[in-house]
Amino acid sequence: MNILSKIVIPLFVVFVVFYGFTKKVNIYDAFLDGAKEGLQISFNIFPNIIAMVFAINIFLDSNFVYEILNVFEGLLMNFGIPLDILPMAILRPISGTATLAIMNDIFINFGPDSYAGRLASVLQGCTDTTIYVLALYFGSIGVKKIRYSLVVGLIADLIGIVVAFILTAMFF
């Protein structure tokens, strides 16, 4: 399984480059065009990153979450879930940048190959920012009554989070 995860990306890259080449796409120019768009996107999200790291750092450094969550520590320990992961699971549906900042924090404190680090990685990759997506997509076409979409989206997130916990315990 480790080998599989190591070849996914190289395989994907060679496939795209090869496919583009055989379709006579000017692959180098296409790459540069896309990269320029990526640069623009990066510039656009930079203020978001600054804003979220700022707020998350204040929040986490105040120790508020940890002292509140300490109540649940015994329960979490039974399942082998590190306490530091909980703020991430809670904020995941709301803000991708916020959880990215928390994940960064976990990597700094425990390292990416620690159990908490791996769990954070799986969590970040497996669910999306439901509330943000709904606000953006419905907002863009002026829909105001969103009906049952939020509930279903959040249940799906919950399923993803629970499965992420179980799988991380199984894999590592």
């Binding site: 890259v13 795209v16 480059v17 496919y19 583009g20 379709k23 796409v25 692959i27 296409a30 790459f31 540069l32 065009d33 896309g34 990269a35 768009e37 990526g38 996107i41």
Partner: peptide
């Protein structure tokens, strides 16, 4: 990845 995906898109 934006660069790689642009190749995929144009192909």
């Amino acid at each position: 990845w934006s660069g790689i995906m642009k190749i995929a898109e144009e192909a």
